[in-house]
Design a protein around this nucleic acid. Structure first.
Lengths: 226, 226, 226, 226
DNA sequence: AATGAATGAGTGTTCATTCAT
DNA sequence: GATGAATGAACACTCATTCAT
């Protein structure tokens, strides 16, 4: 009933503007995500955008942070149900690929645009690298736990994590620009299969006789929407 | 006499303009790849660009085709040395990831920009999907051959190919925008490892007693530069 | 009770706003002296500025008046110690040049900006002319007293005053925009020297035999349009 | 009859744009000398202005150079008729004040605006200081020659030159913003009078018995900060 | 074929001013 | 009196495209 305090109002406005930039960028890219278009999407006047943000790039930076935070939060929520490494890994993959692309295609497309801007804008690149580094760190930890649980050497975890991150980033790109030619729901399956097989194939930790028996069932991976 | 005929000259000019667009797009993206910058890169005058191309987008379309053709040609060249499915698969992966990123970073970055444009420009998207479909077809065939050679069911080939394409597209993105945080040379290794393990784990074709023995050595994968 | 009456408070606010405009104009000029910047300098909110002033130009008008008043007050203070014409003249020059630029560079720079605005804004020009006319009047009177004291004809006083005003206005400009290339402390010396020599060289009042004829004939100077 | 070559055409356009900026700046100042207004004055379209100049400031910089060059050329032309120091000095003063203000009031007003911009724009300030330094150098030389001709010590030349430059800059300001209250033609007279009297009053070079001692002691002037 | 000057629509951004609270 | 969010008209600048030569 009572109007929120001005500070909160400003924060709300900023959040609304960032939120408005997401679909505009998803459909038109950064350069064509004009201040006018963002304002229209947010139901505001163009001048007001620059009252709340110093520059268009600042909105982009906030958008990148928001998407990062969104992904992080979704994983945290999904991972609270279990402590088993494999299940946590699956929760991570599903959070990123299973629901992500299907439930939030605009966010996925916007992220693809962010990735393209990261190629040429140093400030965006720094944020993007930070996001990728965070992904790598989380995945490396999860994979290390999976490997340790099965008494495997964890040396391969970083490279494996890198491959999974690449697969996921590529899946985002393809779901945004070539969805028509990709098989349904391949991505989460492929990611989990890659992880499972790699863990199973990893050499035993400090042991001389590796058996390399795949015990994590690949077949259990199913029903991802990307 | 020394001058080539005008048609051929026109074709040369067109090719030169397309070639000039590549590095400009790699560094500035499509929107900021101005006609002036392309002309400067090509050593031509701005007006001449529009004499040879109806619009800027037409140059982009030609560039996409040129990159597709370049990748196809490189694979063909590398694959002539062998008929063994596994080696041909490796040749393919190396052609795309092994030398690609290191030898032609501008082309990789330009391809990333193309991918972003494909999200919003229908004509570019059609081409991009065509390119991805071609990748999928080639990889599916190569993987099917690998599976058949080992008497495995080939049903999983399309999904596996999709995963590999995603991994490669993601690797392009990451090598262009987050090279600093990725492990060295992870991509080709990951792609080959993924393929090898998946082939090995595939069920036997039309056979009741699967043994699931991994016979394609994962360790043979080495030293890729992406 | 402790609060001053609203009218007085309003006056204080107006004075504070005018005072805040001075350094902002000194550093950014009139056009770039934004209401936001003035408000920040004054520790007020932007909206309040327009509560106390109808427009930005009204603040400028008040600022011009304030600077004029400041200069007048400083001279009055310095001139109370003496009644001797020469000393009063020196007090005037020192008030304007001796301490002025050093003690209040912002005010000097702001005055330069006022001078530029006077070129194009009629209302500011009217005030500026009023200020210059006041300077001329004061200087003419002081110089007339100096001349009279030495029994010289006072006819030249207005022209001499005009030259001194020009020298001082120019000194303000140069101290604000070219301090690096000007000799130290030249201005007050030059002004006093100009006055002293001119007084000494002036013809005797109502006398037929002029003495003190300068070797380089001043009379030969004629027909200048400025 | 024949169209001039393109390079010359471009140079002509640049010169025309610079020339168009002069009256616009003279009447509206730099900030309000909009690209639109300059284009209108030049009879060109706004877009073309930025085809020939990278930025508005670049036009300003060229304008400053043009005014400097104009003043230099006018003096050179006027000074060719004589080698006598005093006459050359007069030629200089007349070139700057005698005809200048009357014949080219827009240029004088534009120069005043340049002076104001020099306060806040480092690049303009650098040019302005260069212009003032050139003035000082020329005047110092001319005054030194006058002093030498009359066997006077030339030590005072720099300070005297500085005073004259200040007087002239101030005269420009006043002729642009307070012409109505200034006596007619005072400036050139004042400048020449100042120079003549100062030369006459200067001590003899290397001589023990100085003559021409002014009754109002110039030496008493000290410690001014400007 | 080729030039490069020219156009005009559109961009991000600034800012004096207004106004609901 | 006071706030600060909001407006809208300007601004400098960019750029694909056109066209006279």
């Amino acid at each position: 009933m009572a109007r929120t305090a001005s500070v909160a109002n400003t924060e709300h406005r900023r959040a609304a503007i960032v939120a408005a930039m997401l679909p505009v960028m998803a459909h038109h890219g950064y350069e064509r995500a004009t201040i006018q278009a963002i304002a229209r999407e947010a139901g505001l006047t163009p001048g007001l955008i620059h009252y709340h943000f110093k520059s268009k790039q600042e909105i982009l930076v906030e958008l990148v942070k928001a998407i990062m935070e969104f992904a992080r939060a979704r994983f945290e929520r999904a991972a609270t149900n279990t402590t088993r490494p494999v299940e946590r890994l699956r929760a991570y993959v599903d959070a990123r690929l299973g629901l992500g692309a299907g439930a939030a295609p605009d966010m996925v497309a916007a992220w693809v645009m962010v990735g393209a801007e990261a190629v040429r804008q140093p400030e965006v690149r720094a944020l993007y690298e930070q996001a990728i580094a965070a992904e790598l760190a989380v995945l490396t930890q999860l994979l290390s736990q999976c490997l340790a649980e099965r008494k495997r050497a964890i040396d391969a975890a970083p490279a494996l994590a890198a491959g999974m991150v690449a697969l996921m980033e590529g899946a985002f790109q393809l779901s945004s620009a070539a969805a028509g030619v990709m098989p349904a729901g391949y991505a989460a399956d492929a990611a989990m299969s890659f992880a499972s097989l790699s863990v199973a194939a990893a050499p035993r930790a400090n042991v001389f006789k590796p058996s390399a028996r795949p015990a994590m069932a690949v077949e259990s991976t199913k029903a991802s929407s990307l």
